[in-house]
Nucleic acid binder design. Structure first.
Lengths: 189, 189
DNA sequence: GCCACCTACTAAACTTGTTGACTAGGTCGA
DNA sequence: TCGACCTAGTCAACAAGTTTAGTAGGTGGC
């Protein structure tokens, strides 16, 4: 039910097509809410039916026509309602954690996954850092937080960043633990 | 598809009933994979049909009979296969993040949610700390990692712990940012 | 002696999310 | 000029997760 709200929060930045939203999602919302284009289009249709967004079709010459969506008054109201509702805490829900839970059964494979994930997390951190630098421009964080009209996207970016940093650190920790164990077990055979 | 694997990883500790699993999940797996009892029972039935677990019914006098599940050889094999597979990275997927993204539209409500979540996270941290102390017994972490036959559950516990610490820190950060903004905006009216 | 909670499940409907393939023209580099 | 990728979507089928409710006896506290 929250994809709706994520879409509306993104539309606070102004009109966008489904395709634009997919890209915007990928760039910023993906830190905390991923979805496929299909989900987006389906949800946009429903939101239009519910009057939360309105669409206008833009004819294009050299490309397929597109539909630009924008928030309606009732969409804005719904978003305000959502921010007032309770938000249940969530868990991480990551297959890698499941694998680590079972790591004692197959340590080598899990170590490989951990190495891969660590690299992935580091790449993501680098990407987030670039995004952050872009958002800040040549201002300090202080200046930005003082001036900007929206701080929400910046704050969520910080959360995504610290999540991935934490991931990378944890992967490293697991690797040293599993490697030390491996050495010990090898020594005792 | 990973609930299956989480269940199997839990069954590495030995036989358990659906009810036991629900509790065990709540206590340890819930850091990274939550589910309702209904999901568990449904999945256990399917897993039995697929030959991954076997059940034996235990007659009880003063309580409903229960079915104790244990891993079969092919279940163990499936779990090993799972640990070897690739594990896609996940995002956080938290409604609170969506609300913070829209925070500029309704700051007061979001601040209330942040305060609530911070408290919740702190409570969870305390619970994890207790669990950790219980796992360690009177050993140091070093000793535990050297001696224990399974380190998986400990490592996942560490991840849950750092996730919640991160949550609490981030909530605090958002609150100071939003409060400073509030003050500034009030001053400028 | 009553109320609330604990064990141990079952049922059904519903909402979300995932996967994979398909259309169809345009741009860009080798 | 060929193939690969980009825009801007659509469709269908399925898998997974959520919600809400119920059964039915036992235990523990006030």
């Amino acid at each position: 039910m929250s994809l709706r709200n994520a879409v509306m929060a993104t539309l606070l930045d102004g009109e966008a097509s489904g395709y634009d939203l997919a890209k915007a999602f990928d760039a910023s919302v993906a830190n905390f809410w991923m979805c496929t284009p299909q989900q987006l289009y389906r949800e946009l249709d429903r939101m239009e039916a519910d009057g939360l967004v309105s669409a206008r079709t833009v004819q294009q010459e050299k490309r397929p026509n597109k539909r630009l969506f924008s928030l309606t008054a009732s969409g804005l109201e719904a978003l305000a309602g959502f921010t007032e509702a309770e938000h249940k805490p969530t868990a991480i829900r990551d297959e890698l954690l499941v694998a680590v839970m079972a790591a004692d059964a197959n340590a080598e494979a899990v170590k490989a996954s951990l190495r891969e994930r660590k690299q992935w997390a580091e790449a993501k951190i680098a990407r987030y850092e670039r995004l952050k630098a872009k958002l800040l421009g040549n201002r300090t964080e202080e200046e930005f937080l003082g001036e900007a009209e929206r701080v929400g996207p910046y704050l969520t970016l910080l959360r995504g960043l610290s999540f991935e940093r934490d991931n990378a650190r944890w992967c490293a920790r697991c690797l040293t633990v599993l490697e030390r164990r491996g050495a010990r077990l090898d020594a005792s055979t």
